[in-house]
Simulated scan of single mutants.
Amino acid sequence: MEPSEADDHVQVAVAWSLHYLACIRMVQVTFWTYDYICLLDEEWTYLLQSCWTRVKALYIIARYGPIFSLILTLYLSFAPNEDLNKCRTLIEVYSCFGMISLACSEWIFALRTCALWNNNRIVLVTILATLFVVAATSTGLRFTAISSSYVMTSAIPGITGCYTGSGDIWYFVSLVPLLVFQLGLVSLSLIHAVQNCRTDKGNLYVIMVKHNIFYYACGVFLSATNILVPMLFSDASHRSFEDLEVSILAILATRMHLHFWHSDQRMRSSGLPIMLPSTYMLVGLESEAAEASILRL
Rank of each mutant, 00 (worst) to 15 (best):
residue 2 E to C: 05
residue 6 A to W: 06
residue 8 D to E: 12
residue 8 D to N: 11
residue 10 V to E: 15
residue 14 V to T: 09
residue 14 V to E: 02
residue 17 S to P: 02
residue 17 S to Y: 00
residue 19 H to T: 04
residue 19 H to P: 00
residue 19 H to A: 12
residue 19 H to E: 04
residue 23 C to V: 11
residue 28 Q to C: 13
residue 29 V to S: 03
residue 30 T to R: 02
residue 34 Y to H: 02
residue 34 Y to M: 08
residue 37 I to Y: 06
residue 38 C to L: 13
residue 40 L to A: 08
residue 42 E to N: 13
residue 43 E to D: 06
residue 44 W to R: 09
residue 46 Y to R: 04
residue 47 L to M: 12
residue 48 L to V: 06
residue 50 S to V: 00
residue 52 W to E: 06
residue 53 T to W: 02
residue 54 R to T: 12
residue 55 V to N: 07
residue 58 L to T: 14
residue 59 Y to T: 03
residue 59 Y to A: 02
residue 64 Y to Q: 02
residue 68 F to C: 08
residue 70 L to H: 06
residue 75 Y to M: 15
residue 76 L to F: 00
residue 77 S to L: 01
residue 77 S to C: 15
residue 78 F to D: 07
residue 79 A to T: 07
residue 79 A to I: 03
residue 79 A to E: 08
residue 80 P to R: 03
residue 81 N to S: 03
residue 86 K to E: 05
residue 86 K to G: 01
residue 86 K to P: 00
residue 90 L to R: 01
residue 90 L to A: 00
residue 93 V to W: 09
residue 95 S to I: 00
residue 99 M to S: 13
residue 102 L to I: 08
residue 106 E to N: 12
residue 107 W to I: 01
residue 117 W to L: 15
residue 117 W to Q: 15
residue 125 V to M: 07
residue 129 A to M: 08
residue 133 V to E: 02
residue 136 A to M: 14
residue 139 T to F: 10
residue 139 T to H: 04
residue 139 T to G: 03
residue 144 T to A: 09
residue 149 S to G: 07
residue 151 V to D: 00
residue 154 S to K: 12
residue 154 S to G: 06
residue 156 I to K: 13
residue 157 P to Y: 05
residue 159 I to Y: 01
residue 160 T to M: 11
residue 161 G to T: 00
residue 164 T to W: 01
residue 168 D to F: 01
residue 169 I to A: 08
residue 170 W to F: 12
residue 171 Y to M: 10
residue 172 F to E: 07
residue 172 F to N: 04
residue 173 V to H: 06
residue 174 S to V: 02
residue 176 V to N: 01
residue 177 P to E: 07
residue 178 L to K: 15
residue 181 F to G: 10
residue 182 Q to W: 05
residue 184 G to V: 03
residue 187 S to T: 14
residue 188 L to R: 12
residue 192 H to I: 10
residue 193 A to M: 10
residue 197 C to H: 11
residue 199 T to G: 04
residue 199 T to E: 15
residue 200 D to M: 06
residue 201 K to C: 03
residue 203 N to A: 11
residue 205 Y to K: 11
residue 207 I to A: 14
residue 207 I to L: 11
residue 208 M to Q: 14
residue 218 C to E: 12
residue 219 G to W: 14
residue 220 V to N: 14
residue 220 V to A: 15
residue 224 A to M: 13
residue 225 T to N: 14
residue 230 P to A: 15
residue 234 S to H: 12
residue 235 D to F: 08
residue 237 S to N: 14
residue 238 H to P: 03
residue 239 R to F: 11
residue 240 S to V: 11
residue 244 L to H: 08
residue 244 L to S: 14
residue 245 E to C: 13
residue 249 L to E: 13
residue 252 L to D: 13
residue 254 T to G: 03
residue 255 R to A: 04
residue 258 L to G: 02
residue 258 L to T: 05
residue 259 H to W: 10
residue 261 W to K: 02
residue 262 H to C: 02
residue 262 H to N: 10
residue 263 S to Y: 08
residue 264 D to Y: 12
residue 265 Q to M: 07
residue 266 R to E: 09
residue 268 R to W: 00
residue 269 S to E: 09
residue 273 P to M: 00
residue 273 P to Y: 01
residue 274 I to D: 04
residue 277 P to C: 04
residue 279 T to M: 12
residue 282 L to D: 05
residue 287 S to P: 04
residue 293 S to M: 13
residue 294 I to K: 15
